[in-house]
Simulated scan of single mutants.
Amino acid sequence: MRHAVTLLCLLVLAACARVPGPFEHDPSRDYYARPRTDKAEVAISPPRNMPPQMGQRVAATLAMELQSYGIVATVAPADAPIQVDGVMSTRDADLSIEVQVDWRVVGRPRTDEPATVKTRARPEDYAEQSERLISRMAQQAAPRVATLVGKPPNFIPRAPGQVAAGITIPYEFPSDPAADGTAAAAAAAAATGTTPTTAPVPTKPAEQQIKVLVAPVTGAPSDGNRQLYSGMRRALGSSKIVIVDGAGEDVFTVVGAVNLTPIDDRTGKLVVKWVLKDPAGKIVGDIEQSNPVPLAAARGSWAGFGDIVASAASEGVLELLEKAINRPR
């Protein structure tokens, strides 16, 4: 099954004589005029006081999220001009655990305010070091850490982490139908002066968690691959999809590929194709985005624009996921 998604923003850009916004051509971005950007700029250390394996995963996921802000990040130890470390602390918060990480740039005065990020989690998610929790912590920390290292976000926020900028995103706890029913019965009994009778209350089935692995995007010029990759992770993550970093027997996979074909010396045809595969590796369907674009624009930075493209395509991916899950076995 194929979904076609039109990139209206690309069409508008292609029709303009002067390319605006994030696609504006800047000579300083030309390869011959700028230093190589594949060297790590920031190294992220696993937060202290955090379980070692969890700390490594948080650092690695945060490094990936920072790519969307134009920051080439990696996990420490690594040779990078900026080293970032963190300290974790936890506290009870009603029925959840509040996980706080104070991120700092190594070497800066201790009087400087840290980038403090708080995340609420279920006790079982923290105990299991779940993918949902790791992804949420990294998404929340990314914009704060980007600002900490001198590269604050300069485009419209579209993901929970960007919107919250490190402020706690309320964790959604499902209501307990049995407890709700007992409370309602007790209130009714108190109002009428009768003794409540105990009756079985139907329980609501647990909401199914859909796990998706976003594979590295290929074929895009400049920083397009990592911007589209990060954009798709955030777009699906903001739709209550659990983003994971490895394949599994219950994990769907989204594969993105870009093809830019020159039409003339100024314009090219940009095609972005996303393929959804089920846990067995069978193709469920694909989404294709296609439009003419200025070549100079496509060869510039995709920061912000990658989010727009991925967000548009994610709607089709969600439709394919729904159909795959609901189709007869």
Rank of each mutant, 00 (worst) to 15 (best):
51 P>D: 11
32 Y>K: 08
45 S>L: 02
34 R>K: 11
59 A>W: 06
56 Q>I: 00
28 S>P: 02
61 T>Y: 11
50 M>K: 02
53 Q>S: 03
45 S>K: 10
17 A>L: 07
25 H>Y: 14
32 Y>Q: 13
38 D>H: 10
33 A>E: 07
59 A>D: 08
23 F>R: 04
22 P>N: 10
41 E>H: 01
55 G>D: 10
51 P>S: 09
19 V>Q: 12
23 F>N: 04
42 V>H: 05
17 A>V: 14
46 P>R: 03
34 R>M: 06
42 V>L: 14
36 R>I: 11
15 A>L: 14
20 P>I: 15
53 Q>E: 04
55 G>I: 04
23 F>E: 13
38 D>M: 07
18 R>G: 06
35 P>W: 11
42 V>G: 07
27 P>K: 12
41 E>T: 02
37 T>I: 08
15 A>H: 05
60 A>T: 14
46 P>V: 02
22 P>R: 05
29 R>N: 11
55 G>R: 00
57 R>F: 02
19 V>M: 05
28 S>R: 13
33 A>F: 05
36 R>E: 14
60 A>R: 13
34 R>E: 12
56 Q>F: 01
47 P>F: 05
58 V>K: 06
60 A>S: 12
23 F>K: 07
48 R>S: 04
27 P>N: 12
21 G>D: 01
59 A>S: 12
39 K>T: 05
49 N>T: 08
16 C>K: 06
38 D>V: 07
39 K>Q: 09
24 E>K: 11
33 A>K: 13
48 R>D: 07
39 K>Y: 14
34 R>Y: 07
26 D>K: 08
46 P>M: 13
42 V>F: 11
30 D>R: 15
58 V>T: 06
21 G>W: 15
54 M>L: 12
47 P>L: 02
20 P>G: 08
25 H>L: 13
26 D>V: 13
19 V>A: 09
16 C>Y: 02
57 R>A: 15
29 R>I: 03
40 A>K: 05
29 R>A: 10
47 P>H: 07
56 Q>D: 06
50 M>E: 13
15 A>P: 01
17 A>I: 06
14 A>F: 14
16 C>Q: 08
41 E>K: 00
34 R>T: 14
52 P>R: 05
24 E>H: 15
53 Q>R: 05
43 A>R: 02
15 A>Q: 13
21 G>V: 01
30 D>P: 01
16 C>R: 11
41 E>V: 00
25 H>Q: 05
40 A>H: 15
54 M>R: 04
46 P>D: 12
